[in-house]
């Protein structure tokens, strides 16, 4: 009886350990952590989708200022926390700010008029969740954009650091992508 119990409990432990290991090992670097509040994520995604479409139309009409204002209003609005809406919320926010910064940078050759505000915005968002954000393409791009901003205001050392973060994140993502492809 004792031997049978030991055997079965050992088997169960082994199975659980093996499955947990396999699950952890095969997890994709770009898997998104699920949200606690699914409705919050769905609502946020619909809002972001609508705003991106509006920005598309504004840009199509040549209203760059309006597009930038729309993106700023979206980025500065109330966003659910990562705990509530999951990692996808952070990804979407970084995507929005990335698009905003890109638009601002594309308007001028040198430093944008509001460089400091843009740098502060990227720094704040890259510090989401104490900077412990899993590698993803949107955050990596935002770090790269921050580097470009810093480069344009002649803060080359800081720019290098930001580029380094972007490159490191992109490298891990590209490695994961290459491994996935047969």
């Amino acid at each position: 009886m004792n031997l049978r119990w030991r055997w079965s409990s050992g088997c169960m432990c082994g199975l659980v350990v093996g499955m947990a290991l396999a699950w952890a090992m095969t997890g994709k670097a770009q898997d998104v952590k699920p949200p606690q509040d699914r409705d919050a994520l769905v609502t946020l995604a619909q809002l972001v989708e609508t705003e991106h479409r509006r920005v598309d139309l504004l840009l199509k009409a040549g209203d760059h200022t309006g597009a930038i204002r729309a993106l700023e209003a979206l980025a500065d609005g109330a966003w659910p926390s990562q705990d509530r809406a999951g990692e996808a919320a952070v990804w979407m926010r970084h995507d929005v700010i990335g698009r905003l910064v890109r638009l601002e940078l594309d308007q001028v050759d040198g430093a944008p008029a509001r460089s400091d505000a843009l740098i502060a915005r990227t720094e704040n968002r890259l510090g989401d969740d104490d900077g412990l954000i899993a590698p993803n393409a949107f955050t990596a791009r935002l770090a790269g954009l921050q580097g470009e901003l810093l480069e344009r205001v002649d803060r080359d050392a800081d720019a290098l650091e930001s580029y380094g973060i972007a490159l490191e994140m992109n490298r891990s993502l590209l490695d994961a992508l290459i491994k996935e492809q047969p």
């Binding site: 994709k28 998104v32 699914r38 769905v42 995604a45 580029y163 972007a166 992109n170």
Partner: peptide, 25 residues
């Protein structure tokens, strides 16, 4: 270069994002 890398990774990232939203919905 980071924009080039973003262009390469964007499709997969948006797919993951879309899957997450779709699953939640």
């Amino acid at each position: 270069p980071y924009e080039t890398q973003f262009a390469a990774l964007e499709g997969s990232a948006r797919e993951s994002l879309r899957d997450a939203v779709f699953a939640s919905r």
